[in-house]
Amino acid sequence: MAGKKFSRTWLTPVVAVLVAFAIGAILIYIQGADPLKAYQSLFSHAFGSWSGIAKTLGKATPLVLSGLAVTIGLRAGLFNIGVQGQLVMGAFAAAWAGYFIHGLPIYIHLPVALLFGVAFGAGIGLIAGALKAYRGIHEVITTIMLNSIILALVDYLAGHVFQEPGQILARTPHILPSATIPNIFSMPSGFFFAILLAYGVWWVFQRTTSGFRLETVGRNKSAAWYAGISVKRSVLIAMAVGGGIAGLGGGIESLGVIGRFEPTFNTGLGFDGITIALLGRANPLGVIPGAILIGGMRGAAASMQFDAGVAPEIVDLILALVLFCVTAPFLAKWLKSTEVGAKISSGWGN
């Protein structure tokens, strides 16, 4: 019984990925390249060596976190499209704390800098949450708008107010060694932390009253109200926690990979999080394989271009196809159970 249920749950994402790769192969072939060779190159660079795996896991780290941020929203019945903005805000705040604050030992400076990332990401999430809870504005609208606002804001901050002296690019000064995330055995330690966090989120939904509250709100708001669960509070919590985790992802990226804040990095991490969360069926543990797959493809795209003469944008294209295949049934179901169903029944006024 459990096995049957398991296979039915994961059938859609697996099929979605396979279909996307198959269509991708046709497109590579049309480009005049060898799809087998291209995929072979992609996967051997991503997973075929220790250095490749290290790179893949490094790329996967912020993706696990942005996937988790989207997942928490989905569980609570919210579609958090603002993970990109929350992540970038966190990346900036952590980098700022990483170079601006002086004289602290690493075991204080690093956590403080990461907390800056969490707090700013959470703050951005909370704005959208509050607009939803108190003004009834749909989170899809507000988070998309906030994304644009934040991208413009950090561009300005990194290009003017906190720009590295003597630099023409928009970027902050380099962070201090005391705020740098060290590697463990040349593997990015942030990844293991992200895995632990994914497990923690899974456990919260599985075993705690807080998880049950959020999930109940996500599945039936009226029943949640009847059961004494505050829908407003749950919306605020889901958006703040999601934003905080996204901000942490940005912080880890700044402090562990890039070493400063530079707006041109970080692009797309939040949007890949949507694909990953949907691939993972809104299961916090389900984001891990999706993040590793997408992280690997992102990391090895340039090498594939070199080996097989395929434009690296083919990776974007395959990921878009994955999203398309995986959302079609998922979103339909999600929409039906929350938005449409509620509208039809409330239209009757009873």
Binding site: N220, A223, Y226
Partner: peptide, 9 residues
């Protein structure tokens, strides 16, 4: 259906 139960639980 609306208040008494969460049908997917």
């Amino acid at each position: 259906e609306k208040h008494g139960l969460v049908s997917s639980y």
